[in-house]
Amino acid sequence: MGAHLAVVIALLLASADATHQEAVGDLLVALEKAADFFEREFRHINLDGVVGFQILNVEVKEALRRWPHTDLGNIHQIARVKQLVNRLNSIIAQAVVTLQESDPTYYRAFEPILRADFWTVPHMWNTSNPALVYPAFREVECFDEKLSDKCMTLLLGTWKDNGTPCIVTNSCRTFMTRLRCPDYSLSHQLLYFMFGAMKGCHNILQGESRESRANPTDHDYKRIFCSNMMKRNIEFENNGFPIQTRDIFIENIMLCGMAGFSDFYKSSWLRHILTWQDSDGGCFKKDEKESPHGLDRNLLGTTNSHKRVNRREKILKDGCSSHMTAVAVSMLGGYMNFYQMEQDITKRPLT
């Protein structure tokens, strides 16, 4: 009986490993195509787009560190990943120089997030909590692009030359902790708290008080935001992934994955997203003209939901979206790092 059970367990582990290898193989193909696109178009990709490839770079390096080097079957994959990292390092360096020349004001404001050492990847995992879902979202975005950019630069210390970082104004705190915000407002609220954590700011919630309940922590807010981003993603999935929702769907996975919420890395979602990549160009496209009429209000609040993205969005030749490609590649890098971390944990000897 014991021998039979051991055989069954071995077969299950082998099957899981084969599925893992297949997923990682698909990710590598997708990321190599995306790197081809980046190499061709880096002179035309905006700052937000380059940041996406830098996040990818950080996540792939971390995945490579965890890659099981003792498995001979992984040698070819490891060589491909090392080549991908080398390519990304080279292209990012060229892209940053181009940005510095083409958009110096925005470059100065957000230069820290272009650096690899700004970004951290999760080493512990949480999950979203359905109990934290809002009863209803606000009907319009809470988003104010100018205020959001100002709040981000105050955290980064780039609001002026040699500016003090980790400055949190009352208006920033109020905006970034407002509840029931939908979609891009919600994702930028989470991003603000992520910036604060990566910059080492511990004062975001100082001075905040809410009546009738305990004051939430930074982590509490991240969990509230990601729980509601999960709700939105499930709604998008249940509606068949309408084209005009795919950008925010991917952005939610990318951000909450980086914030350490492992339940966003669903294999079924990955299979759908990989089919959205342009097989020839390697980019991800927005084509809202193809979306069913009337879904915008139901699934994305109002057209104002695209306000932030439109300002810094850049549609490249063949309809490639700089923003959607950026969030997609950084999200795919998150999947790869998550899979390697899971693989690393399951292959450690029991103590």
Results as ranks from 00 to 15, higher is better:
residue 5 L to K: 14
residue 5 L to P: 04
residue 8 V to M: 03
residue 12 L to K: 04
residue 19 T to C: 00
residue 21 Q to V: 02
residue 23 A to M: 09
residue 26 D to Q: 13
residue 26 D to N: 11
residue 30 A to W: 03
residue 32 E to V: 10
residue 37 F to I: 00
residue 39 E to P: 01
residue 39 E to S: 07
residue 45 I to V: 00
residue 52 G to E: 04
residue 61 K to R: 10
residue 63 A to G: 10
residue 64 L to H: 10
residue 64 L to K: 08
residue 65 R to E: 05
residue 66 R to F: 10
residue 68 P to Y: 15
residue 71 D to A: 09
residue 74 N to A: 04
residue 74 N to W: 02
residue 75 I to C: 09
residue 78 I to D: 07
residue 78 I to W: 01
residue 81 V to M: 15
residue 85 V to F: 14
residue 91 I to M: 03
residue 92 I to T: 10
residue 95 A to L: 04
residue 98 T to F: 01
residue 98 T to A: 06
residue 101 E to A: 11
residue 105 T to P: 02
residue 107 Y to T: 11
residue 107 Y to S: 15
residue 123 H to T: 08
residue 126 N to E: 13
residue 127 T to Y: 11
residue 128 S to Y: 13
residue 129 N to G: 11
residue 132 L to T: 15
residue 137 F to I: 04
residue 137 F to A: 10
residue 137 F to G: 07
residue 143 F to E: 03
residue 144 D to V: 13
residue 149 D to L: 04
residue 157 G to L: 15
residue 157 G to V: 07
residue 158 T to W: 09
residue 160 K to A: 12
residue 161 D to A: 13
residue 163 G to Q: 03
residue 172 C to Q: 11
residue 173 R to S: 02
residue 179 L to W: 10
residue 179 L to Y: 05
residue 188 H to V: 06
residue 188 H to D: 03
residue 192 Y to S: 05
residue 196 G to D: 10
residue 198 M to P: 00
residue 199 K to S: 12
residue 207 G to K: 08
residue 223 R to L: 12
residue 224 I to E: 07
residue 233 N to Q: 06
residue 242 P to F: 02
residue 243 I to R: 10
residue 247 D to A: 05
residue 249 F to P: 03
residue 266 K to F: 05
residue 268 S to T: 15
residue 276 W to Y: 07
residue 285 K to I: 04
residue 285 K to Q: 09
residue 293 H to Y: 08
residue 297 R to H: 13
residue 298 N to E: 11
residue 301 G to L: 04
residue 301 G to C: 05
residue 303 T to V: 11
residue 303 T to Q: 12
residue 324 M to Y: 15
residue 325 T to D: 02
residue 327 V to G: 01
residue 327 V to M: 09
residue 329 V to D: 04
residue 330 S to Y: 09
residue 334 G to D: 08
residue 341 M to E: 13
residue 341 M to F: 15
residue 345 I to R: 12
residue 347 K to I: 00
residue 348 R to D: 08
residue 349 P to D: 03
